[in-house]
Amino acid sequence: MELRWLTSFVAVAEDLHFGHAADRLYLAPSALSAQIKALETELGVRLIDRGRRSRIRLTGAGELFLTEARLTLAQVAKAEAVGRRAGRGELGEAEIAYVASAAFSGVLTRVLADCGRHERDVTVRVRELETPAQLEALGSGRIDVGFLRWRPEYPPDLTAVCLLTEEMVLALPEEHRLSALEAVPAAELAEERFVVPHFDEEHDFRDQLGQVADAGGFPPRLAPPVKDFVAALTLVGGGLGVALVPDSVRRVRMPGVVHRPLADVSLTTRLVGVHRRDETSPAVRRVIRRLRAVASDGG
């Protein structure tokens, strides 16, 4: 069954006149009649009674079929419009993944809010995912944009933009002897066990712990690794160690935890947005533009 047969049938059904319908469709009456006959043959039923002396009329089957034909043509028109809008990037989907600390920083919500205001026809889905899993998912196409902590290098098909640079602070148990200080010297941490998220143990936070240990003149002692900073704060609140955390993690009101700056070591961490270098989806490219706009505004 061809769509042009449905278009021709609806025109004849509305005009109840082959000549008028043919003129509307810019067809010869014979060609229009041939299409109606082909449709009836395909369905195995007569749709139109062609009276020689009386005006043509729809059969009972024709009346029922007319309703469905109109619905089908309307759906086709809608599908065409959706396809064109999707091709222009006006419609589509984008999958975003983030590390937990990205949510605390406010940058993720800023990007999502911009998408909500300016890209309403793009469906954005978000989920929490650790850094290595994000990089793998970006490469395989399972996610489109990742919010993660800085790494010294990325796969060649990915590119990163810095969204936020923030200070690192020390998370301490509330009753810890060092919580009374306004700022904590590195040397005071010689006997402490440090809780470090395992997802980034080769980059950034492990390196920064090394800088603190060097400044304090001690070898770092590590607590068992944890999944993320929320888990790290949980151990700190339980008195099982201390942790270096991004300043934005202060927003997590974990019972039994206080935060203090380091007195003699200045450490920063960067939150980055990562996406495929040669992204082809128009909808995803629109989300990336919002990401880069937030980056240019300094988060």
Results as ranks from 00 to 15, higher is better:
M1A: 13
R4C: 02
R4W: 06
L6R: 04
F9V: 02
E14K: 10
D23W: 02
R24C: 00
Y26E: 15
P29W: 10
A31E: 02
L32G: 07
S33E: 02
Q35V: 03
L39H: 13
E42C: 08
R46T: 15
I48E: 03
D49Y: 09
S54T: 03
I56C: 07
I56D: 09
R57H: 09
R57N: 06
L58Q: 06
T59E: 02
E63K: 11
L64I: 11
A69H: 08
A79P: 01
E80F: 01
R85C: 00
R88V: 01
L91I: 06
G92F: 13
E93H: 10
E95D: 11
I96E: 03
A97N: 05
A97H: 07
A103S: 13
F104L: 12
F104A: 14
V107M: 09
L108K: 07
T109Q: 15
R110G: 15
V111Q: 06
L112A: 12
G116C: 02
L129V: 10
T131L: 11
P132N: 05
L138C: 09
G139A: 11
G146S: 15
P152Q: 05
P156Y: 00
D157M: 04
L163C: 06
L164C: 00
L164H: 12
M168A: 05
A171P: 08
P173Y: 06
H176I: 02
S179D: 10
P185F: 14
P185G: 10
E188K: 09
E188Y: 04
L189A: 05
A190M: 06
A190Q: 11
R193E: 14
P197W: 02
D204M: 03
D207K: 12
D228C: 08
F229L: 12
T234P: 00
L235W: 13
L235A: 12
G238M: 09
G239T: 13
G239V: 09
G241I: 04
V242P: 04
L244I: 13
D247L: 14
D247V: 07
V249G: 07
R250G: 04
V252E: 13
V265I: 10
T269Q: 10
T269Y: 02
R270F: 03
V272H: 10
V274I: 10
H275E: 10
E279H: 06
V284Y: 06
I288M: 05
R289G: 00
A293W: 01
